[in-house]
Computed example of a mutant assay.
Amino acid sequence: MKKEKRLCFIQPCLTNILKTIKIPKGKTCQPTFQLPRAEKLFFSGCSTTQSYKLTFCGVCTDKRCCVPNKSKMITLHFECPNEGFFKWKMMWITSCVCQRICSDPGDIFSELRML
């Protein structure tokens, strides 16, 4: 058995995510969305050597939780000012799903529990 650490980026830290995500007319949920352009990612003062157009979990307006459904692991290459390079694994979300069983509807982290 092997223990690993990985980066996870489920939803960007926007003040009002509902204005960013376009929910189709007649629907109550937009499970996944992408930002309009690729961006570099930052971790501990270092940035990725290339830009990425990430897929994020969206929102539901009907008290369901939107959580990752499918993901894969990718390796990101980071460059640090005056300190060189390093690699780190990241969970790359490929799809999300809106579900009714939620501990705290509207909170994307409600399903994460301390073990």
Rank of each mutant, 00 (worst) to 15 (best):
E4G: 08
H77N: 10
D62E: 08
K72G: 15
C66D: 10
S51D: 11
C96E: 00
L112F: 14
C98Y: 05
C13I: 07
S51R: 13
V67S: 12
T61D: 11
K72L: 13
M1Q: 08
R64I: 01
P12S: 06
K40I: 09
W92L: 03
K53V: 08
P36W: 14
K72E: 12
T55L: 12
T32E: 07
F42Q: 13
I21R: 02
I21V: 06
C80V: 08
R6V: 12
P24L: 04
E111R: 01
Q99A: 04
E111H: 14
K3E: 06
D104T: 02
F86P: 09
R37L: 03
G84P: 02
W88E: 05
C98F: 09
E39S: 10
C60N: 10
Q99D: 06
F33W: 00
M1F: 08
P12V: 00
K87A: 15
K72Y: 15
R6C: 11
C57T: 01
K87R: 15
F85I: 14
T28W: 07
F109I: 00
D107Y: 00
P105Q: 01
D62I: 03
R37Y: 01
C13K: 01
K22R: 12
I74Y: 13
W92M: 08
L35R: 12
N82W: 06
I10E: 02
P68M: 08
V59H: 03
F86A: 05
P81C: 05
L41C: 07
V59W: 04
Q34S: 10
F56M: 07
F9I: 06
G58A: 11
E111V: 12
E83R: 14
M90C: 10
T15V: 11
C46Q: 05
T75R: 09
K72W: 13
M73C: 14
A38W: 12
L7G: 02
C65E: 00
M73W: 15
K70N: 09
T20F: 07
M1V: 06
F85G: 15
W92I: 03
G84Y: 00
S51L: 14
F43I: 03
C29R: 01
T75C: 10
T32N: 07
G26R: 01
Q50K: 14
K72N: 13
C29Q: 04
T28L: 08
R6Q: 15
L18W: 12
P36A: 07
P105L: 03
S110I: 02
F78K: 00
F78R: 00
F86I: 03
S103K: 07
I21A: 04
D62H: 10
S95K: 03
F56I: 04
F56K: 00
C66N: 09
D62L: 08
V67L: 06
K5F: 04
K87D: 15
L14T: 03
L14Q: 06
V97H: 07
R113G: 06
G26P: 06
L112M: 09
Q34L: 10
K19Y: 13
F56T: 01
K5W: 06
S47T: 09
P105M: 05
R113Y: 04
G106N: 02
I93V: 08
K70P: 14
I10S: 01
I74D: 14
C57P: 09
T61N: 04
T55G: 10
C96A: 08
R64N: 07
K70H: 04
M73N: 15
L7Y: 01
D104A: 14
C8I: 06
S110V: 03
R113A: 07
L7I: 05
P24N: 05
T94P: 15
K2Q: 11
S47F: 13
P31D: 07
M1W: 02
D62S: 11
